[in-house]
Amino acid sequence: MANKAIAASAARAAPRPASGVSAFFLKHEWARGYTLLSPTLGVMIIAMCVPVFMLTAHSFWTQNYLTIDKTFTFANYVQFWEKEIYFKLLVKSIKISAIVTFTTVVLAYPMAYFMAFKVKKNKLVWLILITVPFWTSFLLRVFAWKIILGFNGVINSGLISLGLIQEPLEFLLYNPTAVIITLAHAWAAFVILPIYVSLEKIDRSLLEAATDLGDGPVSRFLRVTLPLSMPGVIAACLFVFIPTVGDYVTPKLVGGTEGIMIGNIIQSQFGKANNWPLGSALSIYMVFGITLCVLGFLLVARLITKGGSLKAS
């Protein structure tokens, strides 16, 4: 019986000279990896890299009523500096995003800390509670604030019917503050997860070691927990800051004329204004501005963490 089985397996192993192609794949792991990856990568390149390249190309062309003049020119880039509104709007958008980022991160940190360290039972429930809004309609969340902050909205009508005010408060809607509140709410779930993950990853024995070595809760938090959670905080900042700079939905719904952002101008170039090359150039400026801010932020973050570790040593 055993011999028969062995004979059978010998037949199975009898030289099966792998053909050239499959031998190549067998020998080279990277070839197998790239092959599996190629469809996904191909789609990402066709649907993202090529379009972004064309966007860049557009920014060097000009709109000639309904046609595009494909003569290479810096005209759109020059135009950005000629009307100071563009630059002002870019700076304002970055400012709004920075405030939103700061607010959401500061508000989310204790929540993430609570979930990572305090929740023992039903962690899954808390996690789901936090992540569900993350997936639900962005438009609806923004829209909810429009009806809350509106002139005849939830807050005003609520306060009036309670008799606290006589006239609706006009300052609630259509200003940058409304944009900030709405964005802070819409992006709240995005910041918790990265911070939570970085806190959860911290080896609990490090905290015990800090306590063992004489740190109280506060100094242990400042010297161990906070520095070790910085990667999560930084990731959270980028998650919120980068996409919000270009947002056009929130300002359009709750920002009014005062709360307008660079995204609205870009969007209008592709809509009513119909000047795609200018819109492209504006979006390139926006990406450039975002990149500068992110690099500056990362640099500062690195300096701070480095300084911290030097102090610690």
Binding site: R12, A13, P15, P17, A18, S22
Partner: peptide
């Protein structure tokens, strides 16, 4: 038998 190019599922 030389094993070059023989995948795991064909080995004895």
């Amino acid at each position: 038998q030389p094993m070059a190019g023989v995948p795991p599922h064909h080995r004895p």
